[in-house]
Design a protein around this nucleic acid. Structure first.
Length: 630
DNA sequence: GCAGTCACG
DNA sequence: ACGTACGTGACTGCG
């Protein structure tokens, strides 16, 4: 067996080698630009173009660190050029033109507003190019975002997948050039000869994809969403990523030390109760300690064993003193591992800031996501967790300004459903949950009890997620009958909401998709009445379909607000900068002297970003760090 | 690479 | 036969 395996490995290696060095037929007329004469030729090709496609080859997927290795430009379908700039291996590295000269030739074209630029993942290339003195102006068409709008699950929106799916073209994988795993190298260590056809194909295919994607977007009436919302949003995200957030690293180091000490204390006590050492981070080992050795009652099973999550542990709270210690250990371990110790490693030494990536194609609903670090899930709900936010600070002479939409999703439910009771509850002003509860129980708002308000809040929360009464019962700690009664009472009073939800599911079943106010779509092939799927998946999809128009419209609206705000900050030459978006909230870094003006500007823009049938109200907080915002 | 857990809106 | 509220990303253990 071992011998057979090694033989196969050997064959595999040979095959890989062959693939590596066999040049597949180029997809077009692709040329390297490695002489002054060829640069002159390219310059003439660029005159009077309506569109060009661009792509960069670099050494990293991190746009703030990547070194530029080369630029490819497609001038018409099937015709592209590769300008090598930073290759370090091969006989012809000496022929690479000086960056300065290439910049001076390309910059006028890139800045020409009469020439549209087509890129696949424009944010990345634009951020890299700008670090090398190349700034792009004029219309941008991002084919990756176009592909995502057409298929927001995000699967297969990469250039190679799109080429195959929409053009029937099979492209070379990047791993054929740089390898994989431990043996992976960087693009600057691949010869110009091998990179030229690869890089030219990237630009060429990007250019060729645009008309196909455009036709499809126009067919679905999403061209305006693409050009008027998603494309202008790109520069907003670029500015946010470049700005970053200032971090007080010493504050985190102090917290880390204190937590380390607390963790050691907790671990000692936990081992003592258990009677032996074990790996506390292993749910498997923890399960054995809790449910076999200490014989605590099993609350819930997972696919692979006993559940030990926070709900289970809270249910076991009274059963054994070890449980509380484990809960405390978990909380501190999470905070320390995910935030306190991780953040300093992500601080850019040049800026002292963390420059999170914001992903425009990160979700199926139209929201953005954030990573490295994810700034959209910094703790806030617990006292201890909130202290992490103390490390996010405003620089000297500045403050952080937080502006959040109040109940934006519930307001959208009122607008989308048109339910008169819900609309009226918002028109009354004051506390919305109290108003809704009052209407449900047919009493004046001042007679609503705390418990009634709490229960109403639970229902409303679940409602927007397409809850069932069974799940409400678990969450709100009610019997199933009580929960059912509550849901019935709600839908009786707000029947427009129930109608809207039924209509949404019916639409999804008939059309195979649901959409937001601005026409963003999410597809549910499993809900098409022709498709037969299992009941569980069907219901899960129905819940997602109910939620998407609400969550997605909220995303549309805050994107609109951000585009307008970014514009105004520039035209009014203000120094305030957006640093963060957290779905219904914006955070800005604001010079003290601009606070008054910018606060009013942001509230005005957010409140009026898009008109719906209830007011969009905005709450404001200000502080020197992200924890002390008032 | 998946599962479990947990941080956010 | 079982199971649930929607959408994310990060960390750890384990195969």
């Amino acid at each position: 067996m071992a011998q057979l395996f090694s033989v196969q490995l050997c064959l595999f290696d040979e095959a890989t080698d062959a693939a590596l060095y066999t040049q597949s037929a180029p997809l077009g007329d692709y040329q390297v630009v490695n002489s002054w004469a060829k640069l002159g030729h390219l310059t003439r090709q660029l005159q009077g173009l309506e569109y060009l496609a661009l792509d960069t080859e670099t050494t990293s997927t991190n746009a703030l660190e990547a070194k530029l290795v080369g630029i490819s430009v497609a001038v018409q379908p099937g015709k592209a050029y590769y300008i090598p700039l930073g290759h370090s291996v091969g006989q012809d590295v000496g022929l690479q033109l000086p960056l300065k000269h290439v910049v001076s030739v390309l910059q006028p074209v890139l800045a020409d507003k009469n020439v549209a630029k087509v890129l696949h993942n424009a944010k990345y290339d634009m951020m890299v190019l700008s670090r090398y003195g190349l700034t792009i102006q004029g219309t941008i068409y991002d084919t990756m975002i176009a592909a995502w709008l057409l298929s927001p699950s995000g699967r297969g929106i990469g250039l190679k997948a799109q080429a195959w799916q929409r053009l029937g073209v099979e492209m070379q994988a990047i791993t054929e050039l740089i390898g994989t795993g431990r043996k992976q190298t960087t693009m600057d260590r691949v010869t110009i000869t091998r990179v030229t056809p690869y890089a030219c194909a990237d630009a060429d295919i990007t250019l060729r994809l645009l008309p196909v994607l455009r036709a499809e977007l126009k067919l679905r009436q999403q061209w305006d969403l693409f050009t008027q919302l998603e494309m202008p949003f790109i520069p907003v995200l670029i500015a946010m990523e470049k700005q970053g957030m200032l971090i007080d690293v010493s504050c985190l180091q102090t917290m880390s030390q204190a937590m380390q000490y607390q963790l050691e204390e907790l671990v000692d006590q936990i081992y003592e109760y258990a009677g032996h050492h074990f790996n506390l981070n292993s749910t498997k080992q923890l399960g054995i300690v809790l449910f076999e050795e200490l014989e605590l009652p099993v609350i819930r099973q997972t696919k692979t064993g006993w559940s030990t999550d926070v709900h289970v542990l809270e249910a076991l709270h009274q059963s054994h003193p070890i449980v509380e210690l484990i809960l405390e250990y978990r909380q501190i371990e999470k905070l320390k591992g995910t935030y306190i110790d991780a953040l300093p490693t992500l601080v850019n030494p040049g800026t002292g800031r963390v420059h999170s990536s914001f992903h425009q194609t990160g979700t199926s609903t139209g929201r953005i996501s954030s990573s490295h670090p994810n700034l959209q899930n910094i703790p806030v709900r617990t006292e201890l967790g909130r202290t992490v936010r103390r490390a996010f600070v405003a620089p000297e002479g500045h403050v952080l300004l937080g502006c959040d939409y109040s109940q934006v999703e519930l307001r959208l439910l009122a607008h989308l459903s048109g339910d008169p009771g819900l609309l009226e509850a918002f028109a009354r002003g004051e506390d919305i949950h109290t108003n809704i509860s009052a209407a449900m129980h047919d009493v004046p708002p001042e007679e609503v009890t705390k418990i009634q308000r709490r229960q109403t809040k639970d229902i409303i929360f679940g409602l927007m997620y397409g809850m069932t009464s069974a799940s409400l019962a678990v969450r709100a700690n009610l019997s199933e009958a009580e929960a059912q009664q509550f849901v019935d009472a709600f839908f009786q009073r707000f029947s427009g909401v129930q109608q809207y939800m039924k209509a949404t599911v019916a639409r999804a079943g008939a059309l195979g998709y649901v959409e937001t106010l601005l026409g963003r779509r999410r597809y549910f092939p499993e809900l098409l009445t022709a498709e037969a799927t299992d009941e569980y998946a069907q219901h899960a999809a129905e819940r997602s379909a109910i939620n998407m128009p609400i969550q997605g419209t909220a995303a549309d609206i805050i994107k609109l607000a951000m585009i307008k705000l970014h514009d105004r900050l520039r035209t009014e030459q203000l120094k305030s900068r957006l640093v963060l978006q957290m779905h219904d909230e914006l955070v800005l870094e604001v010079p003290n002297e601009e606070l008054e003006q910018v606060q009013h500007l942001v509230v005005d823009i957010m409140s009026n970003a898009y008109e719906i049938s209830v007011p969009l109200t905005v709450n404001v907080t200000v502080g020197n760090n992200w924890m002390d915002m008032k």
